[in-house]
Each structure stands twice: as structure tokens, then as C-alpha cells.
Design a binder for these strands. Structure first.
Lengths: 224, 224
DNA sequence: ATGGCCAAACTGCTATCGCAGTTTAGCAGT
DNA sequence: ACTGCTAAACTGCGATAGCAGTTTGGCCAT
């Protein structure tokens, strides 16, 4: 057998119970079903989800690591309280990480990645024209996630997922005004162009400005 | 009883077995005892550490979340392989996060924080003059950690700890040349001054430049 | 000597149980 | 009616056991 390099045989990843519990709880927190300050009992949640406390415990620790839950040593785990300040901080962290991700993506993108980015961008354009806000939000997220995936950096991807979840808790519907839609589309186009061109500095600067602007918009909304 | 606001009664946090396992394993990975690619068996490590597999499992998932370990679905967990590219990516992430942290610290610092920062800076100056590299590295880390703590942002602190651990794997001794020592000291002084002045933009830019330069130095070292 | 197969050992994952510490509800005393 | 104590219920944490799937070492046939 020659020592040749092969791709790692990507196999479908049957999600574990802990993974599913994590996703379920995170969604509940983001959606507001589990309100901030509410207690997250291992046994109680386990009973609701129909699993044993063990996977729930793992999910809680993960949420805690992502800042969406807080644990008092021997008392319990609670849904993290969120303040406007904290939310804006998360927005800044998100902005910095998205910028770095765009820069790395501009360095590493392959022809396949470029094709994927073009496809996502077309989908964003289509959704922008349609006026369907939910679809637009979905394809926008998909575009960002495509950029994340191109970095191939597990820690970066994970951090971005965490901060995005947290950040989106109370910024669900920012993309409403026509101005926002057209501005966002133009920015996305420019970012993708810079990544395709392999220009890390420009890609990072544009992405940072793009996401930073959304923080400002959120701040204005929240201050009202 | 009136509804008055009280600080949360900080009590000593007896570290859990999972915490200790995590610290132990992380140190072993950073130090190289657990080499990249090596298998991390829950039961095996549990026997070595004298605990049950359960806390070890939790520690492994945490390491995995921080990018220091990788897990193949039903095969095992392994120490993450590290490449120069990946290390530089981590350096960029670190730089971005440290910058954000410095900016947030400049917004939130209290008089007590300012006193703490001044004390740390004096310690750094003292250690720089002494020529004791280990002590200098320790007080430098302490200065950075003080800034992290001032942000009060759990997710940010956690992310920084993770990326710092990863980043320091093969950059243990950068601070050797006299030039590095004096340049680093000057930069630290300027950063602390900006934070104390409450100037977020300057603090972030200086911190980003400071940490970004250390990435470049590391890259030069590694390329030799 | 080489290729294929199979069983034993090992893997991560989940369930169940027990422990020490915390919270809480209710009772007793004023 | 209010305070102070106590016991029962609940909490997270850890240990142990069992399951299904994976890996591995060795045996047999070629």
C-alpha cells in the first residue's frame, strides 16, 4: 500500500442524544420558550426530552461554555440573563470573528468554494428581490455559514455559531427596511468578490464593517 | 425586606473533578506529553487520573470544543494535529479577540480595575528589567488576564483562554530578544494607558497591533 | 509469505444509582 | 402575624454497568 493522501471519507454523522438535546435547548432559549433566569434542571429537562439526565448535562455544559447558560456551583444551571450591553458586546465579538473568518476564507478558498459562494450570492439576490424576509434571513445565514466552512477552522466555526445564536436572540428581525435589504446585498456582493479575488485584508475589512453596521442598527432598535 | 441590589456573594469555587481533569489534560497537550494525533481514551485516561470515565469525558468534550482535540464519531478522541497554517490562524483569532477585549475593558473599567492594571504594569516593568524570562511571561499573561476579567464577558474570556492555550503550544519562548522585551513593554504601557483613559478605539487598535505583531514573530520563527 | 475472515478487546454513548450539599415548605414558638 | 428551625425534596456531581459499533490480533486457506 502506497502512502497516498486521501480525503477523510466523510460519513454521515448520526447526531448523538447530547447533540440533539443541545440543539433543542438552544432553540428554546433563542426562541424565548426558556426565558432568561429560568432554571435548567438536568432531571426535569431530561424528563421533558425523554432521555436520561446524562446527555442533558452535557448539553448544559456546552450551553454554559457558549455563554447562554450560567451555573451556580451547587445550586443549578440557569438561562443566562441578557442585557443590552452584553448583547452589543456579543455583536462586537461576532463582528471581529466574522472579519477574521472572511480573511481566512479569502486565503484558503478553492475553486469549489468559489462556485459555492457564487451560488449562495445568487440565492441572496433572488431572495432580496422576492421580499420574503424569512427566506432572505435564511439565505443570508447560509452565505455566512459557507464562508465559515471555507475556513475549515473548527474552533472558529464553533465560536461563531455560539456568538451568532446568542446575538440573534433579540435581533431576529432587523432586515425589514428596504434600505437595509439593498445595503446588505451590496455589502455581501463586495465581500464575496474580495474572497473570490483572494484579498484577505479587503475581505476582512468589508465583513467587519458589514457586521459592525448591523450591531449599530441593533443598538438603535434596542435604544428606542 | 427592601429589594436592594447586592453583589453576588463571591464564594470559593471548589474545582470539580472534571475541571481538574480538563486542566491536567490541557497542560499535558500544551506541554507535549500528549502528542498530536495521540488517542485520548476515556477509560485509559480515567485510570491514569484515578477518576471515573465520566469527568474525563466532560473534559474531553471541552477540549474538543476548544479545538485542542478532535473526535471521530464512534472511534475515539485524538489530540488535534497542528499545522503552521492553523497556528497562524489561531494567532489571528487571538489578535481579534484580544482587541475586542481591550476595547470592552476600556468601556467598563472601574477605579478598582485601573488600580489593578497599574499594579500589573509595574510588575511587568519590574520583570522586564530583571531579565527573568519565565517571570516576565507570567506577569505578561497576568496583565492580559486582568484585561479579560475586566470585560466580565464569560464567553469572551473562555474563548480567549482556549485560543491562548492552543496558540501557546509552540510559541512558548518568543520573548527572548532584548528588542522584543522593550517593544512589548512599550506596547503594554500604551495599551494600559488607553484602557485607563477609557478610549476603546485606541485600546483595541493598539492591542490588535501588539498581538498581531507577536503572530508575525511566531511565523518568522516557525518558518526558519 | 500473503490475503481474508472472525472473534475478542476496546471504543464512545447512555442509563441508572448513590452521595453530599442546597433549597424549600411547613411546623412550632412567640 | 411573624420569626426561626427542621426535615423532606431537589440539586449537580460522580461511579458503575451495559449496549452497539469499531478496531485489532491472530488463525486458516491459499
Amino acid at each position: 500500500m502506497t502512502t497516498m493522501k486521501l480525503p477523510p471519507l466523510l460519513q454521515d454523522d448520526p447526531p448523538t442524544l447530547a447533540d440533539r438535546a443541545y440543539l433543542s435547548l438552544r432553540e428554546a432559549i433563542v426562541e424565548g420558550t426558556l426565558a432568561p433566569g429560568m432554571k435548567l434542571s438536568e432531571r426535569g429537562l431530561a424528563a421533558m426530552l425523554g432521555v436520561s439526565p446524562q446527555p442533558v448535562r452535557e448539553a448544559l455544559r456546552r450551553l454554559e461554555g457558549e455563554g447562554m447558560a450560567e451555573s451556580r456551583p451547587r445550586s443549578g444551571t440557569y438561562v443566562a440573563e441578557l442585557s443590552i450591553d452584553r448583547l452589543l458586546e456579543m455583536g462586537r465579538i461576532r463582528s471581529a470573528l466574522e472579519g477574521v473568518a472572511a480573511g481566512i476564507a479569502a486565503r484558503r478558498r478553492t475553486p469549489i468554494d468559489i462556485a459555492a459562494l457564487r451560488a449562495r450570492l445568487i440565492a441572496v439576490q433572488s431572495a432580496s428581490a422576492s421580499g420574503d424576509e424569512r427566506r432572505l434571513a435564511a439565505v443570508n445565514a447560509s452565505l455566512h455559514e459557507t464562508l465559515h466552512a471555507i475556513t475549515g477552522n473548527a474552533l472558529l466555526i464553533r465560536s461563531l455559531q455560539a456568538v451568532n445564536a446568542y446575538y440573534h436572540i433579540s435581533t431576529r428581525v432587523i432586515l425589514t427596511s428596504k434600505y437595509e435589504v439593498s445595503a446588505s446585498l451590496a455589502e455581501h456582493s463586495a465581500i464575496v468578490a474580495a474572497v473570490i479575488d483572494g484579498d484577505p485584508e479587503t475581505a476582512e475589512a468589508l465583513m467587519r464593517a458589514h457586521t459592525g453596521r448591523s450591531v449599530d442598527v441593533a443598538a438603535i432598535e434596542l435604544a428606542r
